[in-house]
Write a protein that binds this DNA or RNA. Structure first.
Length: 346
RNA sequence: UGGGGCGUCGUCAAGCGGUAAGACACAGGAUUUUGAUUCCUGCAUCCGGAGGUUCGAAUCCUCCCGCCCCAA
């Protein structure tokens, strides 16, 4: 009764090593590469890895849903003056969904990826825990997963460090691309250029104003800036300016000083919870307002309609609508939601 | 064309006879499975122009050019 698993192979070391670990643990491994329609060399790497490690390799073309659910969303958010997080949406709507679909179709028991996160069975169902390597923890990108996904998931890399993974990868002579990864469908990391080549109507140039309303510069379309941004504003001053807010209605970008970025809390919508439910009372947890954020103690107050109000113990900078806020209790990810806006004091 | 002030890196700005600080901006890199942030490095052989004084000037003198005030 050998257990079988479908590993999402991306072409990088992480997923390759995940497959290796599973093989060593005695799983019957098959690999799946999700072709998103944005040609990259990674598909060849993925095939080479499967070939080298000797397991069946499948390719599934998910170009259409990827374009519709991820790329269109990505562009739409920027045009609306928000800061999208395509990886989170992709994980929920594309990556893990199709991985599970294919596992079902192929008759495989589990699915696995190279994420740095852990799944554990608790008394209230499956729990999603931070990876042991705190610096590489990727649970932030997984907050929308639920019990159904977690029940099928294995994260072999979650209890290892990146250094250990690299070592195994090197030992296996896995073809390694460059380590840095940007948005997978924008290889040159130039999202502004990508938007400009995407079939959408871009916002026109407009004014950059300070907190007093004075015009201090010009922007080349609100989609070219994001909350918290400093570089590229082209405003010479005694101190740097940061983007505080994007006003699509007036087509203005509001900038201010470093301290103006501080917020006491935020409102988030479309929340989801790992356990499937959340108490209707306020509770305390550690809030993370972006990937690799150090986290801040906060009081979370659930509101109607899957919304929450979050108050920070200490003010936080650069709250960006469109980004996700997630909540932890220790190493356990409780859930999260999408940032709608910040508030400075109540 | 009477009086006064000022002209130093794209911007702001130190320096006031001893051989061009700093900040912002900008560029490149590092970090990063989102966007930012952060970090590192680079960035005026030259101080509006031309002469002069001096061992030596952005710093003193002369003239010119350009701004800005005040008064006509």
């Amino acid at each position: 009764m050998t257990k079988s698993v479908l590993v999402g192979i991306s072409g990088g070391v992480d997923s390759a090593v995940a497959a290796v670990i599973l093989k060593e643990r005695g799983y019957r491994v098959e690999g799946l590469y999700l072709r998103n329609g944005f040609p990259l060399v990674s598909e060849q790497n993925a095939a080479a890895i499967a070939d080298r490690l000797g397991f069946p390799f499948h390719v599934l073309d998910i170009s259409n849903p990827f374009r519709k659910d991820i790329v269109d969303y990505f562009a739409k958010e920027y045009l609306a003056g928000r800061t999208p997080n395509p990886c989170i949406v992709c994980n929920k709507k594309v990556k893990f969904r199709y991985l599970i679909n294919e596992a079902d179709r192929l008759g495989l028991d589990y699915i696995a990826t190279g994420h740095y996160a852990r799944v554990e069975m608790g008394k209230e169902g499956f729990r999603l825990l931070k990876g042991v390597d705190g610096t590489k923890d990727q649970t932030y990108f997984l907050f929308q997963l639920g019990q159904e996904e977690l029940g099928r998931l294995i994260f072999p890399n979650g209890d290892r460090t990146k250094a250990q993974i690299r070592k195994i990868g090197k030992h296996l002579a896995i073809p390694s691309g460059k380590e840095s990864q940007e948005i997978c469908f924008i290889p040159d990391d130039n999202y502004r250029g990508f938007l400009e080549s995407y079939p959408v109507t871009l916002p026109p140039p407009g004014n950059i104003v300070d907190t007093a309303g004075a015009v201090v510069g010009r922007h080349q379309g609100t989609h070219t800036v994001t909350i918290g941004q400093r570089k590229g504003l082209n405003i010479a001053s005694s101190r740097p300016y940061y983007v505080l807010e994007i006003n699509r209605g007036r087509n203005e970008v509001i900038v201010g000083r470093d301290e103006d970025q501080l917020s006491h809390g935020l409102m988030a919508a479309n929340c989801s919870w790992i356990s499937g439910t959340v108490s209707d009372r306020s509770f305390n947890a550690r809030a993370y307002i972006r990937y690799r954020h150090r986290g801040v103690e906060a009081e979370i107050t659930p509101l109607t309609g899957e919304r929450v109000q979050v108050r920070f113990e200490t003010p936080q900078k650069a709250i960006a609508p469109g980004q996700a806020v997630v909540f932890f209790e220790g190493d356990s990810l409780l859930g999260g939601g999408w940032i709608e806006g910040r508030f400075r004091d109540v």
